[in-house]
Write a protein that binds this DNA or RNA. Structure first.
Length: 812
RNA sequence: GCCGAAGUGGCGGAACUGGCAGACGCGCCGGACUCAAAAUCCGGUGGCCUUCGGGCCGUGUGGGUUCGAUUCCCACCUUCGGCACCA
């Protein structure tokens, strides 16, 4: 009997799979309707910014097991792979290496693909794509133009978050606690003309369509809901008689408008200059505005509230009273209208402000059970509250008052119901080299003109210096920039910003369905055949950014008639990260565990097994070398025990011994765990348990059958050793075999172990016939000597019988 | 502050609808093989007590429901994650 040698058997089988294109899945010739027998398993595509570490390997192992499992259940499984090769991660990695982004990226792609192949993954490489290839980004540009046509991509001067380190603007979603998501530098505020996607137009749909999702983690849904941040309220108009203008404010508490005793504008509010121009307040107010602009986001949030009076007044639309207008930076220009009504009695921030500047505080809402005379604002909001000091609305419960007040103001054209969102439009332009060029020409006469579809792709130009420098490096490619206007034929200049890499990854899952299409991004019939993705797998870090953007893209494409569904990912699974030495595994921390070393020394199968055996796949887990050795031992043991059985004559029908039953129970457990519950670690333990039993009873007539079961079940995890052993056990190829089915007859036991409890505590266990009646079970229980000792002449008050399980005798 | 998830041996963790707590692995202990060690194989392994039959305690803490609770309910503690000057 030879020794288990992964270095010999793994490359052997990988060659066979490659030669046979074992994991390629061709598209159907006539994908006219969605076939129930197909499945699309997808993991989030990697950034080719370096090599894979164990964290990545764990992620792809989930898709790996699901893919093998469903294949062997007879599904036609699409499981593609590609690379998110444009964008900051790849570009920064290239700059660090001192290489051109294209060279570095393509080298990394080749490396990662080699790693993946060495791990033996069941990937359809015929569908591989990389987002930096012109064949791909041509269609990214094409899609951008469809968004542009629909008014969903637009240009606007906006206050942006600027990362001084990466020298580019960031989307709101890429700013965490005032810092750049990628490099951690504190972001600065700038005003720039930028390209945006109108994601806010889809805020409600993005919320409502969550109902269409089959299975997403509640955590991710909550994060998206928080991010969209929908709140219902009203827009109210406050007149400024001096300027003869009405200023709109958004409030969620229109029931408190009678208590609005002052009015506050954000320092960035466009009205301020007009408001104070030529007044004695001008100098002080403009000084405050300047200071506020210089404050960092963090400072603005943490300091005590301050502001300046403008000397002007606004009219409270409910009371008709003049209330003073202030400027204060606790009011944010980005949310609502950049102006608020100050209701100090019922808002903590307004209260703090009013206290500091001695503004009047008028209580207009009271809890139902008598007014509290406590200091401070009363901010609770329940149906029990009633309005006071609110004119004709006094005495109304506050939810009713809300409606009534808005309705009344609407009649006077001073207000209307409204909804506020936290979600901002998606800022997509980046001042960096390594990205998809935006297919727009600037023309003095015609404005922003789309590049005609036939001229796509707008190729990324070669430039001498692609380092970030505050404006797009593309601007230095003068010959490329200078072009003719597609509309009037006059002089035009190309847009020099590139797209955020999240644009590239917002539709890649569609391209996989039809990756070589030269006439369109994809064929609708084929996309409708494969999608929505049945099982999407990725990290929780994409809970908002990528997953929200991809949903947005899908909705727009569905409305444009490009595809026939509204949600791209039916089921989502977020896997946990791999930690090492107590920290998240990452290159910057220098604590990555390199899969290649382990694969070279112990084989891919051991690595694959251990990554799933580590713990629950939706939770973080710690890599431990000595735990890994357990998997190496398991494979050796499997090898030895299986070959021992291979020397025995083939089994034929499995006899119904305890070992045969154990094998069938293992099949049932594995099928249930993987198929129904998406639990991928316990099946390994179940197979280990079975193997232990075989090793204890190698002469059992069912031992050979049990070994074949174990080999077959472990195949998705350790396909190389499984294939090899399967062949040595005298069978045809395993990967085309269907999943074994548990024999119901063998799962049905003739006897079972009766648990006997006294007052809920286990006292004894006896073997009982499966068809024993309740009376017989009680009789068996009471005749047990151990139970008798416990009863000790006491009276049995109650007898609980759970058929085929237990008897519980209740005594005094 | 609001929302969400989780607390089980020395460690990672199992227990799917309330019914044998600790599967499986690591580590540790003992044995076999060996001149010896490593590797490998076999056995043991929650704690305390034991006359070796067994007994008692035990799933973050305190209550509750139940014949019976790791599982359900209430309160609290701890940890992790998300959101937060959002009007």
């Amino acid at each position: 009997m030879d020794r288990y040698d992964p270095a010999a058997i793994e490359p052997k089988w990988q060659e066979v799979w490659a030669r046979e294109r074992a994991f390629s899945v061709p598209n159907p010739e006539h994908p006219s309707h969605r076939d129930e027998g197909n499945t699309y398993v997808l993991e989030m595509l990697p950034y080719p910014s370096g090599e894979l570490h164990m964290g990545h390997v764990r992620n792809y192992m989930l898709g790996e097991v699901i893919t093998h499992f469903r294949r062997r259940h007879g599904f036609n499984v699409l499981r593609p792979m590609g690379f998110d090769s444009f964008g900051l991660p790849a570009e920064n990695a290239a700059i660090q290496e001192g290489a051109h982004p294209r060279e570095a990226t393509e080298r990394n792609i080749a490396r990662i693909r080699a790693q993946m192949e060495r791990l033996g993954w069941a990937i359809d490489w015929d569908r591989m794509l990389a987002t930096h290839e012109p064949e791909y980004y041509r269609w990214t540009q094409w899609l951008f133009l469809r968004f542009f046509e629909r008014g969903l991509a637009y240009r606007k001067e906006v206050a942006v978050k600027w990362c001084p380190n990466d020298q580019t603007v960031l989307a709101n979603e890429q700013v965490i606690d005032g810092r750049c998501e990628r490099c951690g530098a504190e972001v600065e505020a700038r005003k720039l003309e930028q390209w945006l996607f109108r994601t806010t137009a889809y805020a409600d749909v993005l919320l409502d369509d969550m109902a269409l999702l089959e299975s997403w983690p509640e955590r991710v849904l909550t994060m998206q809901r928080n991010w969209i941040g929908r709140s219902e309220g009203a827009d109210l108009l406050f007149r400024i008689p001096d300027l003869d203008v009405d200023v709109e404010v958004f409030t969620t508490r229109p029931d408190t408008v009678f208590g609005a005793t002052f009015f506050v504008l954000a320092p960035e509010h466009p009205l301020i200059e007009r408001l104070v121009s030529g007044t004695p307040y001008e100098a002080e107010v403009l000084d405050y505005v300047r200071h506020a602009a210089a404050r960092s986001a963090v400072e603005r949030e943490t300091k005590t509230k301050d502001g300046v009076a403008t000397g002007r007044f606004a009219v409270n639309p409910a009371t008709g009273a003049d209330i003073p207008i202030w400027v204060a930076d606790y009011v944010l220009m980005e949310y609502g209208t950049g102006a608020i009504m100050g209701v100090p009695a019922h808002d903590e921030r307004d209260y703090e402000f009013a206290k500091r500047y001695d503004l009047p505080i008028v209580k207009v809402v009271e809890p139902a059970e008598g007014g509290s005379d406590d200091e401070g604002p009363f901010v609770a909001h329940t149906p029990n509250e009633r309005c006071v000091n609110s004119g004709e609305f006094s005495g109304l419960p506050s939810p009713e008052a809300k409606r009534a007040i808005v309705q009344s103001l609407e009649g006077k054209r001073l207000g209307r119901p409204s909804v506020g969102y936290r979600l901002r439009d998606w800022l997509l332009s980046r001042q960096r080299y390594w990205g998809c060029p935006i297919p727009i020409v600037h023309c003095e006469q015609c404005g922003f003109v789309p590049v005609p579809d036939g001229e796509l792709p707008v190729l990324l130009p070669e430039v001498e210096d692609y380092l970030p420098k505050g404006r797009s490096p593309l601007a230095t490619a003068e010959e490329w920039v200078r072009t003719t206007c597609p509309s009037c034929g006059g002089e035009g200049r190309r847009e020099t910003d590139t797209m955020d890499t999240f644009v590239d990854s917002s539709w890649y899952f569609l391209r996989y369905a039809d990756p070589h299409n030269d006439n369109a991004p994809f064929d609708r019939a084929i996309v409708d055949y494969w999608l929505p993705v049945n099982q999407y797998i990725g990290g929780i870090e994409h809970a908002i950014l990528h997953l929200l953007y991809a949903r947005f893209f899908t909705k727009v494409m569905q409305e444009a008639g490009l595809l026939g569904f509204r949600e791209p990912f039916a089921r989502l699974f977020t896997q946990g990260m791999v930690h090492y030495r107590g920290a998240k595994m990452s290159k910057s921390r220098g604590n990555v565990v390199d899969p290649d070393e382990y694969v070279a020394r112990y084989g891919a199968d051991a690595v694959r097994l251990y990554l799933l055996f580590l713990g629950p796949v939706d939770q973080d887990a710690e890599w431990q070398d000595n735990g890994f050795e357990g998997m190496v031992r398991f494979l050796h043991r499997l090898w030895r025990v299986a070959l021992e059985q291979a020397e025995r004559p083939p089994g034929g029908d499995a006899p119904s011994t305890a070992l045969a039953r154990k094998a069938h129970e293992t099949i049932a457990k594995v099928t249930d765990d993987v198929g129904r519950r998406f639990v991928l670690n316990t099946p390994i333990a179940a197979v280990m348990e079975l193997l232990n039993e075989i090793a204890r009873a190698p002469d059992d007539p069912a031992a050979r059958f049990a070994v074949e079961t174990a080999v077959s079940l472990i195949q998705p995890y350790a396909p190389h050793v499984a294939e090899e052993l399967w062949q040595r056990l005298g069978h045809e190829r395993l990967w085309v075999q269907s999943w074994p089915e548990a024999d119901p007859a063998l799962l049905e036991r003739e006897t079972f172990e009766l648990v006997i409890q006294v007052n809920g505590k286990v006292r004894d266990r006896v073997e009982v016939a499966a068809d024993a009646s309740d009376e017989e079970l009680v009789a068996r229980a009471t005749e047990s000597p151990k139970v008798r000792a416990q009863l000790d002449g006491k009276e049995i008050r109650q007898t609980i019988v759970v058929p085929r399980k237990l008897v519980n005798l209740v005594v005094a």
